[in-house]
Design a protein around this nucleic acid. Structure first.
Length: 107
DNA sequence: TCGGTGACATCCT
DNA sequence: TAGGATGCCACCG
């Protein structure tokens, strides 16, 4: 695992996100020691769907579902979050600070 | 091998 | 305070 690529680490962390919880790209990047390179996390999640990773639980620092456009359905990402009890309005997660899951803190 | 790309974050004006 | 521009680093062709 530790020898896996940067992407694999992102997948592992994303998979550890609890049900009904969300996190941010920066949090994962920081956890992986790539603080400031949050873009890598986003790019990693680009292929996360192949790894069965809940990329819909990963949003930007504002709680905005910036990556929804990369999902199959336009509102698929929102639907998935709502299915988990996460309120999403206008592609933005409500109670973001409350549902926020910090890997650095939890792990 | 090298350059471009990318779903953000942060600094500066 | 708000908006725009730049930088981070790993994968793909």
């Amino acid at each position: 695992m530790a020898n896996e690529g940067f992407f694999q680490k992102v997948y592992e962390v994303a998979k550890l996100i609890p049900y009904g919880r969300i996190t941010s790209y920066g949090a994962i990047a920081n956890y992986l020691g790539a603080s400031g390179s949050a873009r890598m996390v986003g790019w990693a999640l680009n292929g996360s769907d192949k790894e069965n990773v809940p990329a819909h639980r990963v949003v930007n620092r504002k709680g905005l579902l910036t990556g929804k456009h990369h999902f199959q359905g336009t509102n698929l990402m929102q639907q998935l979050l709502e299915s988990e009890g996460v309120e999403v309005v206008d592609n933005q997660v409500q109670d973001f600070d409350k549902l926020y899951w910090d890997p650095m803190k939890e792990l």
